[in-house]
Design a protein around this nucleic acid. Sequence first.
DNA 1: CGAGTGATTGAAGTGGGTCAACCCTCGTGG
DNA 2: CCACGAGGGTTGACCCACTTCAATCACTCG
Lengths: 262, 262
Amino acid sequence: MTIDKHNIVNSSYKRDKIRMKNPIVAGGKKKINCNSCHTREYCLPQSMSANDIDDVNSIVITRKSIKKGQSLIRAGSDFHSIYTVRTGFFKTSITSPSGQEHLLDFRMTGDSLGLDGIAKKVHLTDSIALEDSNVCIIQYQDIEKMSKISTVFLNHIFNLMSKELNRENYNLLMLQMNAEERLARFLQNLTQNLKIRGYSPSELLLRMTRVEIGQYLGLKLETISRTFTKLSKSGVVSINRRHLQILNLEALEKITGVTHKT
Amino acid sequence: MTIDKHNIVNSSYKRDKIRMKNPIVAGGKKKINCNSCHTREYCLPQSMSANDIDDVNSIVITRKSIKKGQSLIRAGSDFHSIYTVRTGFFKTSITSPSGQEHLLDFRMTGDSLGLDGIAKKVHLTDSIALEDSNVCIIQYQDIEKMSKISTVFLNHIFNLMSKELNRENYNLLMLQMNAEERLARFLQNLTQNLKIRGYSPSELLLRMTRVEIGQYLGLKLETISRTFTKLSKSGVVSINRRHLQILNLEALEKITGVTHKT
DNA sequence: CGAGTGATTGAAGTGGGTCAACCCTCGTGG
DNA sequence: CCACGAGGGTTGACCCACTTCAATCACTCG
C-alpha cells in the first residue's frame, strides 16, 4: 500500500482547512481582505499596526493559481506586480548566457516573488512552482502609492528587498563550504522555515529533485545523492527518495557549526 | 627608479583636479550641493530631472574621508545612513560564524554602500577602504522623507537595491565557472567599470591583493597567481604585481563567452 | 638594512565531477 | 490488469582542477 503524499506532511491539510472559512475560487480574481488571510502573520511585518493593515486593504490584491511545473514569472518579462506565496512551493532561478541554470532560492508561504524586477521594470529571474500553488498579486502602482502614504509600508518593502540581499549573501558563503556542510545547511534552513510556518521540522517531503538541490548548492546530483547516503549512514537523517526525516538535529548543527536559536 | 603609484592610473589625478574647484575640507562635515558634484552622473539616475535634483539638494549630505585599510562600516553596527563613494575604492565583505571571510564586492566612485542595513537597521556587511577614500553620507530619515515626496527618488533607491541583487546573482553564477573564466570575468567587469568612469580600461593598478581577489572569486591566492601567470603566458594580459595591462580584449571575451557592448 | 607582507612557483593530495550501469516508482496505454 | 517506458535516484570507478604545504623571491617601509 502506498501512502498518499498529500497526507504526509507539508501543505495540504492546512490549506484545506483554510479554504473552508475563506472560500476564494482558485484562479479567480477578486479584491481580497488581508485581515482574514492565514499568511498574514508572515506576509505583513508583525510591527504593522491594525491601522496600517486597513491601509494595506485599500489596495487591490488579486490571487492566482499555478500548477506544478508551471512558471509564475519568466525572466525577461515585463514587471508590473510582485507576488506573495499563499500556498505551495516555488523555485527561483537565473540562466547564464551560456545556458546553465542556477537556482537562487526556494520560496514558500509568505515569501515574496518578483521583487527583483522593481528597478528595471523587467523580471530578471524565473519563478516556477514545484507543487500546485496559489499567490497574491500586488500591482506595482499600488506599492508606489502605499510607500508614499505609509512609512511602515515603505519599510516593509525595504525589508523584503533587504531579506533577499541577505539570502544571497548567505548563499555566497555557502558556496565556500564542502558538500556535506552545504547539504546540512540546506536542511537546517528548510526545516527552520517549515517550523516557523507550523509544519513538522523533523519529517518532511522534499518538493525538489536532486538536480534542483544540486543547482541550488552548486553541486552535481550524484554528489547530493552520495551526501544524503553519507548523512543517512551516520544516522543524522533517514531518507527514502523524497521522504526525509531529521534524526539527529545536534549532529546537523555540529556539521554546519550553526546552532539554530529556537 | 620606482614609479609613484599615484601617477599611474586610477584615481588621483582626477580627484585633485576636482578638489581645486570644489574645495571641501577632507573629513569635514558640511551641507553639500549635489549639482556641482563630479560623481553626479553616476550617483543620481540620468532620468532625474533638474527639478528633482533640487529636491535632492534639500536633504543634508555630509562627507567623510577614510584612510586606506580603515573600515567605513562594520557589520553589526547600527544603521542610520547610506553612503556613496566619491573617490577611492572599497571592498565589502561578510564573515561567516565559523570565521571565514567572503568578499562580496568592490565599490568605486558612484557606488553605494550600507544599503543592506535598511531592513533590520543594523549593517550586515563590512566596508573597508582599499585606498584613501571619500564618501557622501545620506541620513536614513532623509531617504524616507525623499521617498515620500518623489517617486523618482523612490525608484532611485529601488534601483540601487536591485542593482545589488543583480550583482549577487551574477556572483553566484560566477562561482560555477572555472578559475580562468572567473578571473577573466573579474577583469572584464573591473575594466568596464573603470571605463564607464573615464579611466583607462586597458592599463590599471589593482587595488586589492591576490588574497582578496581569491576571497571574491571563491579561489585560493595561489590559484589566482597561477591563473594570472597563465593569462600572461598566453598573451592576454601583462601583469607585474599590482600593475596590469589588458593586451587582448577579444581573448578575454572568448574566455568568458561574454562580449561587452561598448 | 632588515623585517614583514605580498606574490610566485613547485610537488603532492583530494573532493567533487564525469561517465556509466542499474534500480525503483509511477503513469499510460494496450 | 499488466507491460513498458521515462524520469528520478543510487552507486562505483576513474579523473582532474583546485587546494595544501612549502620554499623562495620582490617590494616597501620603519
